[in-house]
Design a protein around this nucleic acid. Structure first.
Lengths: 184, 184
DNA sequence: ACCTGAACACCGTTCAAGT
DNA sequence: ACCTGAACACCGTTCAAGT
């Protein structure tokens, strides 16, 4: 046991726990994965996880942040597509974490920290979608509602089993409703 | 202990458990309420609840059915209103069970019986909304997508804290997008 | 058929103790 | 500062036993 543990070690151990938790959450679901399982997968004992993250919601937030950071990094690919394809890209991206979407909603009812994360996430996606719609020529006084509609539709498509063709059709209908009010 | 218990008794005891569970679920949430609490509130011991309902999801389904039946009964008030008000009425009605909406999504991932209930619920609301939009003159080939959008928006408004005025504005925007494609 | 006491395996979390 | 062994109170669920 080295006396002067480098700060680097702490980051590494933390990252290992997050990586383990992320994989387990994504393919078994938050509720189904116990602290003991996460700890075992990361090669520590469950109390250690508490030392790093405080509680189970703390790990969830760390996992959510990591997943979001990865998605933002990939958003470079996004530029040259046209509107429907852009929304489909976002949807596909979110589907990587679709199990976590339901979990965030469920935990938001009880955990203040998850609720805060959830609100920040919605503020971000709302702002991005408002920019999209403004660029499409939607008049300014209708942009807010349309962005909200788009967010809820994306969430709905995420949380319910829907065939790919239908996803495209529903998103196209959202855009049609939006652009029909545009001055162009 | 009467030897020939009337079948009536069974219904009554069952109803008492459902009533107790319903009240507890609605103001504390499904996860937060234990089988022991439900049983105590209904004046029995927890095993008895298993005898009547099989498992915790069984009680949830019974509660959902009761809540839905009450809502359908109240839907008589619904007739004379105009479109936005009708959607707002549905939203207000669903808000009585807003905590349960998140629960149904969460449990659907693990429980086949809850998933089945969830699908039936969506089929029903989808059919009702298709009728609404058809009556508004939306052309038949766009009705499906608009009904889906409306369902997801209602769900979104349910699951996120939104001010009343904004709810009306968002629902009005959905209808505007719909009727702009109408032949009328 | 209906209801219970007692137990089972597990959960998230805490805390005193070690290095 | 970092990590653990052992315990705590609780959970959904089961089962043999009673009437």
């Amino acid at each position: 046991m080295p006396r002067n543990r480098r700060p680097r070690d702490r980051e590494e151990k933390r990252a290992e726990i997050v990586t383990a938790a992320r994989a387990l959450f994504l393919d078994e679901g938050y509720e189904a994965v116990s602290m003991t399982r996460i700890a075992r997968a990361a090669g520590v004992v469950s109390n250690t996880v508490y030392w790093y993250f405080g509680d189970k919601d703390g790990i969830l937030i760390a996992v959510l942040d990591e997943v979001m950071a990865d998605a933002l990094e990939r958003s470079g690919e996004l530029q040259p597509l046209e509107p429907v394809e852009r929304l489909l890209w976002v949807l596909t991206e979110l589907e990587r974490m679709s199990t976590l979407v339901t979990t965030v909603h469920a935990r938001s009812e009880e955990s203040a920290s998850i609720r805060e994360w959830h609100e920040r996430f919605h503020a971000l996606t709302d702002a991005l979608l408002r920019l999209e719609f403004a660029a499409l020529g939607v008049p300014e006084d209708g942009v807010d509602e349309l962005a909200t509609i788009a967010v809820y539709v994306l969430e709905g498509l995420l949380m319910h089993p829907v065939e790919p063709a239908r996803k495209r059709a529903v998103l196209a209908a959202v855009l049609r409703g939006a652009t029909s009010t545009a001055v162009s």
